[in-house]
Design a binder for these strands. Structure first.
Lengths: 340, 340
DNA sequence: TTTAACTGCTAAAAGGTTTTATCTAAATTA
DNA sequence: TAATTTAGATAAAACCTTTTAGCAGTTAAA
């Protein structure tokens, strides 16, 4: 099964009895500029169409130092949120002639570091990253070396890097206020122990709402450092069993909410009659579940759009000193208590 | 923000006052074979370690004609099933020095065709594909040109191509039998109108089980050609409203089951007391939903493992005539009626 | 003594582009 | 008439590797 040799610009030149340079100029639309005769332009173009020549991207990459590849480093590509973003940026990338290589960091600093170094030498043109803890230095290096980088989902305060995030604090505040308005007086915030900006902001929003309203609250932070170190379900079961007074729970992410809802079912806590729930990160199932669950929906399309917009902007500005672009998007609270 | 020029093999050679060739041999572990002196080997290696030289993969690709990139063409990367597979093959690909570029076909022949042609000229080393309808010719071309191709989720009978699929017919049979054993006597098969092998096989398994057991059955096939052409929820609502006698439903995919369950809720059909449900493609949510839903679980890890195993095997055998590898994996029926 | 093989290393080609500098002949300008 | 410009093209370098063929000097085999 021999792979036929692909036609190169050289073959075309030889066949047509002209120079490689001329062919290249014509292919790249620089023919007029280089005063190639209309006659020759047509002849070459016709031949190219006839044989269906396509330039070798690897050779182009080598010559130009650009690969038309963007790397998408998510925490976990199989997570619904990241998979959705992946899908959406794919569209825009391909429209602009870029391909996307993906990889998952597992939120592990070492792994992320290694991935970054691998991709640097791959001549990728840009990085879209959900930064892991302690990645500041590596991001900084990347920027210093002139790579376009756009962070999302979370950001790093110490580094001046473009990012696209959402209003975590504001939305957590709003979601918590929603619980209070519905009558909750003994709140609980369920999250993972994390130094990530989005988690910290969500916690802050929750606390502020509880304090502003003079409502009792507590926090349940699960350790998630080494993956599967702890079973969130069992931990939550234990936590809520010991605290029957809680009447409103704010989950910082949807997967925590799923586990929490399981626990509520087992503990016979009636949702939403006895205990109301709000979760960050809306999900198809919150609408399907009985009862429907109120959740904060992130603007996925907008995130993806801004991510690629920012990336493409930076890609165009390569070699210039570019100013970081910082985008903060609003979320939507989908109230579902009334709709059963 | 100037990108510093990366060190090349040439720089090393000049710095050390030796030839490029020698450096290359040492880097590629061919030093002994080429009888380079131990002394020189050490000197070069030490220097390389010191400056942290990494070879330019683009130049290597050009020279070797291999890119160490595999393209993963799924129907929709944001779909939980495909996203999970993506995650799993990522592991194995990276372990073997391969990167993965993803793209989504939307099950659209034209789009898939275009993507394939784009990637061909990108010098990708291999293709993992969920084939769209009418893709036979393009797959065949790919194979003729010597590209390793592995299909999954579905396959194409007319083309002799490696693939990794599951026992669709057998599992559909088993799932249907499960409904019958639980007492269902008026079955319904819900699927999409499709010529894809996996859908056809699932339908066949369902029918066979119903016929073997002499049980009444009907089929509800939704049109899904142009995406969003029809709202499955509304269609299902109407369908089941008109057929109150149905007491067992087999959903061919999980997203149909989700929509169907919504409809059952609205129609006040008690699941599982009055109407039992089995779905293909298990999902986290089937275990969370009340009642829990019985479903057929595909062996994701195994699929991913076999996919990459087959791909790597083919990649090693390039330029040889290789025999297609055909893997068919068993699924697991997760019965959940009793566990509430 | 001639031939063959080994030693330790290197020059140069090849892979397919893009782009700068340059060429010749014809046309224009001074 | 001489000097300059223009038109229409091209040679060759550069991007960074890998690999084949070969160098000159020495040693072993025939």
């Amino acid at each position: 099964m021999m792979a036929k040799k692909r036609v190169s610009i050289k073959d075309i030149a030889k066949k047509l009895g002209i120079s490689i340079t001329t062919v290249s100029f014509i292919i790249n639309g620089k023919a007029r500029e280089q005063r190639i005769s209309e006659e020759l332009i047509k002849k070459v173009q016709d031949y190219i169409d006839e044989i269906g020549y396509k330039p070798n991207h690897v050779a182009q990459s080598l010559r130009l130092g650009k690969s038309k590849v963007i790397v998408f480093m998510a925490e976990d590509i199989s997570n619904q949120f990241f998979a959705s973003i992946a899908r959406l940026i794919e569209e825009k990338a391909y429209q602009n002639g870029y391909k996307i290589i993906y990889c998952s960091t597992d939120n592990d600093h070492e792994k992320a570091k290694e991935l970054i170094s691998t991709f640097k030498m791959r001549n990728v043109d840009g990085f879209i990253i959900t930064p892991t803890p302690n990645l500041e230095k590596d991001i900084k290096n990347l920027l210093d070396e002139g790579f376009p980088v756009v962070l999302f989902d979370r950001w790093i305060p110490d580094v001046s890097c473009s990012h696209v995030i959402v209003q975590n604090e504001e939305s957590a505040y709003q979601g918590t206020m929603h619980l209070i308005e519905k009558g909750c007086r003994n709140l609980c915030f369920v999250s993972v122990m994390s130094t990530q900006s989005q988690m910290i902001d969500r916690a802050r929003g929750f606390r502020k709402a509880a304090q502003d309203s003079n409502v009792d609250y507590q926090e349940c932070l699960l350790k998630f450092h080494n993956l599967a170190e702890i079973e969130p379900y069992e931990k939550l079961l234990e936590f809520f069993e010991q605290r029957p007074g809680i009447d409103g729970v704010f989950f910082a992410t949807n997967y925590l909410a799923f586990e929490g809802l399981q626990a509520m079912g087992v503990l016979q806590r009636q949702v939403p009659e006895k205990l109301k729930v709000v979760s960050f990160d809306d999900h198809y199932f919150f609408n399907l579940y009985k009862p429907k669950i109120t959740a904060i929906e992130q603007p996925l399309e907008m995130i993806a759009e801004k991510l690629m917009e920012t990336m493409l902007e930076h890609l165009g500005e390569l070699d210039k000193v570019y100013k970081p672009v910082k985008v903060v998007l609003a979320n939507r609270l989908n109230e579902r208590e009334s709709t059963l």
